[in-house]
């Protein structure tokens, strides 16, 4: 487990927006998204049939975004590459378990990558094998993750963004520290400088409101 100093700099909301595609491309993007969903589902079918073109397809379609996600959580490129490699192996092995009655192929693939990253973060043995310098760089990179900013670049007016905006600040911050930052309950409590139980109830409350809003 990474040791995070309590009372680290707080994650104030900023108004930094990254560039978004022009609104006029919405229809193209929709078609593209549907197409991608189908291609990813086909790629998983190929993996399930032990055809490794499926893995190539997944990396072609989602590789850079998946690596970006892993880098954001792990804070280091080399660890992120390890995580993505391990995750691709898991995707290959678990492909038969995917069922499109329980969410999209895309969501399923991202969940595997996310979970692999979190396991690396929480694998004390793995971290203890790092040199103190390497560990320090991981910790520094993790400290600089500002998950409470990234949600603001979600497509403006998107349901998720609107629903996140509607949450109490503390609830939203706790949820984003967990989902985007990959922090554990204990780490979030330290960051928010509140007891563990408070963090847990903020997350529960926030998630309940979020799900109601998204429904």
């Amino acid at each position: 487990m990474l040791q995070l100093a309590p009372n680290t700099p707080t994650f104030g909301m900023t108004t930094t927006y990254r560039q978004r595609p022009p609104a006029g491309r919405t229809r193209d993007r929709m078609t593209h998204v549907t197409d991608r969903t189908a291609r990813l589902r086909d790629a998983l079918k190929q993996c399930a049939a032990e055809n490794d073109d499926g893995l190539v397809q997944i990396l072609n379609i989602e590789g850079p975004q998946l690596l970006g996600l892993a880098t954001r959580i792990l804070g280091r490129r080399d660890l992120a590459e390890d995580a993505l490699q391990d995750a691709m192996v898991q995707i290959w092995r678990k492909a038969q378990q995917f069922s499109d009655t329980s969410g999209s192929a895309r969501g399923w693939i991202y969940a595997i990558v996310r979970n692999r990253c979190l396991n690396i973060l929480r694998d004390g043995k793995r971290l203890s094998l790092m040199s103190p310098e390497d560990l320090a760089t991981v910790q520094e990179a993790r400290q600089s993750i500002e998950p409470t900013q990234d949600w603001e670049i979600l497509a403006s007016g998107s349901k998720l963004q609107n629903c996140l905006r509607g949450l109490d600040d503390k609830n939203r911050e706790a949820i984003l520290l967990a989902y985007v930052g990959g922090y554990s309950h204990g780490e979030i409590a330290a960051k928010q400088d509140v007891p563990l139980g408070t963090t847990k109830s903020w997350i529960r409350r926030g998630l309940t409101s979020l799900k109601e809003c998204l429904a």
Binding site: P64, Q65, L67, G68, W151, L154, A155, Q161
Partner: peptide, 10 residues
């Protein structure tokens, strides 16, 4: 999922 897609691609 959109939150995952907000990470900068590498």
């Amino acid at each position: 999922l959109p939150l995952d897609l907000s990470a900068v691609p590498q």
